[in-house]
Amino acid sequence: MAFIETISIGISMLLYIFFPPLLDGIERKIKAKIQTRYGPPTVFQTWYDIIKLISKELKIPPTLQYGVFLLTLAFSFVIVVLYLLSYIPVSLNIYMLTIVIILIVSLHSILAFVSILSSNPFSIIGIFRGLTIDIVNEMGFLTSILVYYLTIKTFNPSIKSFLLLLFSLLFVFIVSYVGSKRLPYDLHEAEPELASGSVIEFSGPILALYLYLHLIDRYTMVALPIAIGVAIGLQLSPLISLLLIHVIAVVIYVFFGVIAVLLGRSRIDIAVKTLMLIYLIIILLWIVVKLI
């Protein structure tokens, strides 16, 4: 038994490490198709990009000296998060979930902090836009996971339960969509000509690391609720649930990619208002249904 669990955790971790850039390549291909273009030559293009960036010379701008340290810290956090995520199908309890959430939130804040280190007045504009969205969304993230966990824990086959599940699923996936910084909420890199974001400060291996972390973060944000749902709701054997988690996550990831192509970019004031409104409405609906 322990052998199969170890194997499944190992495979899962490998998938978590390998999938995100591949999925990004698929997303780019789909985006190109919708825009009637060819797009990158293969779906592995993002992987090639990252490998090429890593092979470039290392240039550390003076403002980013501590940023590099933080990025490596973030990387080790990511590894732990991936391990815990892979462990969720094996056994899940509230304490482990709390640790995962804490790790993910601190990962986000480390990434935000790295960008704040920049002294470039133009990237600061984009960074603060990104931060504003992050703050709103991080609150949403905490609430949504909590609401979702509660819903699944108390799930029984009734209309009320299904409604609650629907709301919490909607909540949790909107949060993970916004957290993925896709259109219309990619405000941190909105107008590269006018006010750039954090990425402008990075180059070579640092840029590669940052991109990779960002892509893994995107994927984990999608995979986390699925892992919780599969682990608590379905109670399958680790190997099957592991496969299920990844299949569903890939489908949703690609779905997100399609949505991003179809929308325009929001503006910071509109974005904050809309997000607040959406989250409040969903929470209220959930509470109302719960109390009935």
Binding site: K33, R37, L262
Partner: peptide, 13 residues
Amino acid sequence: KILPIAIKTGTVT
């Protein structure tokens, strides 16, 4: 509605 248009058009590059 842009999806059916894109599918119908295919790749123009």
